[in-house]
């Protein structure tokens, strides 16, 4: 069985602000890390590899050349192959263009029996790429998978989270799943594997190698949504700042709660 796992490198910090005077984005440092939600996708892939004989795990990412680091990290935990989709012409991709690019890359290096994505990223926070990717690949998907009960060459049995219910479903492969945080406890990268995989190549794929080579399907041109402008979040106009000792502040808070009837006795 061939399992693909989609990973993304995200900024190490979420501390990004807009300078209210100039409108320029301010971002501290450029350190980056593997999207924390993807650790669960990677772990799920590795657990499945351990349960189904002859299974390989391929880690796929899209991003600038330095996102290679997260493929190295995947190697250190047990992924067999790694692919990075990188091209300046992918810049400015929204959900649709990102999903399209990933679908092209996965088609090129696939086919996969099972594709696993994290629930969402910490930078885009949209949680929509998995389902769009499945649509482009023409396979079913399950979102918010909280447990996998069985996987064999033909079927996957899993539990997924719905607003008020949980659904146990059986799905015929190939399929794509997005997994919830906590489905499995992610393992740590192994130093032994780090040494063993230091020379393992990472396949780098640019736009010209993809099945669809039409440049306007990628990046900004391939993105139906456009950011018209960015602005700092509005702040509350009416507010009071209270300072003083802990005791004084507690007293004022108490008086406020009492005045506003939050301290009614029950019954």
């Amino acid at each position: 069985m061939k399992i693909g796992v989609c990973l993304k490198q995200v900024p190490g910090t979420t501390k990004v602000e807009v300078d209210p005077q100039t409108g320029v984005l301010k971002r501290d440092g450029v350190d980056a890390k593997l999207n924390p939600f993807d650790l669960y996708a990677l772990e799920t892939a590795l657990r499945m590899k351990a349960t189904v004989p002859d299974t390989s795990v391929c880690a796929v990412t899209m991003g600038p050349p330095q996102s290679e680091e997260i493929i190295r990290e995947a190697y250190m935990t047990g992924a067999d192959d790694g692919v990075i989709l990188s091209d300046r012409r992918f810049a400015g991709s929204d959900v649709l263009a990102t999903s399209w690019t990933l679908s092209q890359g996965l088609t090129l290096v696939g086919p996969f029996d099972l594709i696993i994505c994290g629930k969402q990223t910490t930078d885009g926070d949209t949680a929509q790429v998995g389902a769009e990717l499945a649509e482009f690949l023409g396979i079913p998907h399950l979102c918010n998978v909280t447990a996998i009960e069985e996987l064999n060459e033909e079927f996957l049995t899993a539990v997924m989270d719905l607003p008020g219910h949980v659904q146990r479903v059986k799905v015929k492969l190939p399929c794509l799943i997005t997994v919830e945080k906590g489905i499995f406890e992610p393992r740590l990268p192994s130093f032994r594997r780090k040494l063993a995989t230091a020379d393992r190549p990472i396949r780098r794929i640019g736009l010209d190698e993809l099945p669809d080579r039409e440049a306007r399907h990628y990046g900004l041109d391939g993105s139906p949504t456009q950011v018209a402008r960015i602005f700092p979040p509005e702040s509350n106009q009416v507010r009071e700042t209270w300072t003083g000792s802990g005791r004084e502040l507690a007293d004022r808070a108490f008086a406020w709660l009492k005045e506003h009837k939050f301290l009614q006795q029950e019954g």
Partner: peptide, 11 residues
């Protein structure tokens, strides 16, 4: 952009 920024998005 994962930060303290709001975006106004059009299709």
């Amino acid at each position: 952009f994962g930060g303290n920024i709001m975006a106004h998005i059009m299709t």
